[in-house]
Each structure stands twice: as structure tokens, then as C-alpha cells.
Design a binder for these strands. Structure first.
Ligand code: FES
Ligand code: FES
Lengths: 132, 132
DNA sequence: GACAAATGATACTAAAGTGGTATCCTTAGG
DNA sequence: CCTAAGGATACCACTTTAGTATCATTTGTC
């Protein structure tokens, strides 16, 4: 069970690399060569980051990507939600038909608490902090 | 991203039912009929629980399962590990070749902290507490 | 303006994980 | 010895995650 998947993982690396080169424009090819990640895959990730306005892109010849905000304004949690969807540990462990006590179920409460703890832990983590 | 999968879920329900009937011997068929879970699937789960010495089984005619310890001695975390493997959120977010700082990496430390928090939260949860 | 080098959009394929099924073997009470 | 149970194991289906391919569009350079 992974908390962080490969998309998020690669995204962090790519952002880090592009931020380092700022204000230079960095092409997909460069990211692929420097980081050794599969090209079409990293392209898709860069596109998503651009849509999320974490990167800016310029098309055409000599085009590429630049970072559009400081690392201290990019939150790990946002990346995770972007690439992995909402962080939810469980809805109801019991199946609908069986579940006796949807309202005040201790399991549900427990899991929910844990989920909230994790999200709170993650909330403060920016890429800046993460990567020194 | 689920913290609890169906195996664990079904296991909790089955244990609860069998504990309720204790000291009667309960057959797979009965569990299946009462809880409405698919028979071959629940059979596999009961087998695993037996191997883990949470249930005891008697073979042959009129055989079946009984609970082998009180609900207060069965930990949710143990069930999760039994059916879902080790709870590990991530090993190294970066791939081996790229990872610059395996030793004192803040990401790793963060995620590890979160993982430990979750495990600690879960550690205290017994089935007894869970099911009143 | 044509060309080339870049991103945008989108659809597809492959691999892994999860959920579920089927079959045959072994045991033991009646 | 027959039958009703569990033990072991192998298989299949579905979903999610990871990765690939293709074509269209944009834009700097000559
Ligand atoms: S049993 Fe359904 S919400 Fe807990
Ligand atoms: S980057 Fe490898 S352990 Fe953190």
C-alpha cells in the first residue's frame, strides 16, 4: 500500500529539476535525459503540472517549461491530489447490506481520525522544505 | 487509496459472527448464509485466520470453526498485516539511480513519520473495542 | 512562408494488484 | 465406508497503475 505513487514521485523530481534551471526554459527531452525517466510518460506529467499552473509552458520551436511559482508555494498534498485523487482511506469497511451502525461506528470514526491526521501532517509540507 | 481492503473487512465480520456463537462450532456454509458473502472466498479467509491461530478448526463431518481467543486480544493491525501485508507508505520516492540523499532525506523522514503515526493509531485497536 | 522543434490532446497497451471461483485432496463423525 | 466438513492450490476477472504511441497545433529561425 503506497501513499505516494510514481506520478507524484516523478512530478517532484521534474519540478525540482526545472526549478533549479530557472529562469531557463527546459524541454521534455532535457528532463528525460537528465532524470532518466520515460519520455512520453514525463510529458504527460508535465502537461498536467502545466494545467495545474505549477509550470508554465511555451510551445513551438525552443519551447519548453519553466516553474511558475517558488518551491515554497508548492504543496506535496496538492501534487498527490492532482495525480492520485482525493486521499480517502475508507468509506465503510462493512458492505452496505451488513453494516449495522453506519452513523456512530467506531471503526469508521477511527479510520476517519487517522485519515485526518495524515492529511494534517501532509498539509504543511512544501517542496521547498522537502528538497532543502 | 484504501487503508482497509475487502479481505480484512470480511475477516472482521466473520470473526465477529463466530465469536458471537462461541463456543458453538460454525461451518463455512453458515457464515456464508448469515453474512451473504461468497462461499469460496470466505473459506479462504477462514483458512488464513486459522493458520494465524485466531480461529481453531475441526475437520471432518460436523467440523467447522471456533474463535480461539477473546476479541480483546485480536488487533485490527494484525488482521490488516495478515491480509494486506506490511503497512508501508513508501520506501524511497525517488528511483534508485536518481536518489541523491538516501540517508537523511526529508521526504523519506516525513513519510516515515506519517507511517509510524498511522501504525501507532492502529496498534491500540482491538476487535472488541471496534464492535462494542 | 516553409521547416523543424517543441507542446497539447487523446487513445491505446501492458503489468500489477485485488477480488472472486473452482477443483481436488484429506479428515473424521455417524 | 460414506458423507460432510476443512486444507491446499491453481485459476480467472476486474480494476488500477504504469507506460506508449500518434496526430494535431504552435512558433522561432532561416
Ligand atoms: S460498519 Fe458501516 S460505517 Fe462502520
Ligand atoms: S530521495 Fe531517496 S530516500 Fe529520499
Amino acid at each position: 500500500m503506497k501513499l505516494i505513487n510514481k506520478n507524484t514521485d516523478y512530478a517532484v523530481q521534474a519540478i525540482y529539476y526545472i526549478a533549479q534551471k530557472s529562469p531557463d526554459i527546459v524541454s521534455t527531452v532535457e528532463v528525460e535525459e537528465k532524470l532518466g525517466l520515460p519520455r512520453p510518460f514525463i510529458r504527460k506529467i508535465l502537461q498536467i503540472l502545466t494545467k495545474a499552473e505549477i509550470l508554465s509552458s511555451s510551445k513551438g520551436n525552443k519551447g519548453g517549461f519553466t516553474i511558475s511559482r517558488p518551491l515554497s508555494d508548492i504543496y506535496l498534498l496538492d501534487l498527490m491530489q492532482l495525480f492520485q485523487g482525493r486521499i480517502a482511506f475508507t468509506d465503510c469497511s462493512f458492505q452496505k447490506k451488513v453494516c449495522p451502525n453506519a452513523g456512530h461506528c467506531p471503526l469508521r470514526r477511527r479510520i476517519k481520525t487517522i485519515e485526518e491526521t495524515v492529511i494534517n501532517e501532509l498539509k504543511g509540507v512544501t517542496l521547498k522544505e522537502l528538497l532543502n
